[in-house]
Amino acid sequence: MPIATASQTIGPYWHLLEDESWADLTRLGAAAAHPDRRPIVLSGVLRDGAGDPFPDACVELWQADPPASDAFPGFGRSRTDRDGRYRFRTLMPQPVPAAGAPGTNALQAPHLALAILSRGLMHALHTRVYFAGQALNEADPVLSAIAPARRGTLIATPLGAHDGADGWQLDLRLQGGDETVFLEF
């Protein structure tokens, strides 16, 4: 039986495949296709174990809601810039069904999936972005699986509206005292 191919680091030169427009998931006409959804801008700084921002990472975003279409790819990719900051423009997701719960009404709070790839990472680090103030956060099965003291590392804070979008911030720490919770699935 074949087994899955091993991961290797994305390295420092992955920008050769970068299309910077991918960081804007609304570029294909998402606003017209989903007039009920608020555009959001999510950004944050990625830091290493010394607390230094790292400028060469590839941060990828996937969201199952709204469903991907010709007007909304659901997937984005952002480099971290000189200051270690990633930045996406997308649409606010709505709740989606919880794992293994067909036929029930169990829901997950609105969230985005992030994968971090970079030099020094032998494989992708997975985490999620939740949004402060969402009532469903309290009952979310993934947040509930995380020790309360560390849940905050997955919850973005509001920055206020700017340029037609609600701003949200979530800094990511790969190692250290306020280390982001990473997920395995």
């Binding site: 290493d48 969201q63 659901g74 989606v96 969230h111 993934v142 995380i146 997920l183």
Partner: peptide
């Protein structure tokens, strides 16, 4: 990898539509 690997173990989660769908 020295300053970029998490020290805490990852939290295992069940795969939901978020992980089972893709671009």
């Amino acid at each position: 990898t020295r300053l970029r690997h998490p020290k805490q173990a990852p939290v295992k989660i069940a795969q939901s539509i978020t992980e089972l769908s893709g671009p």
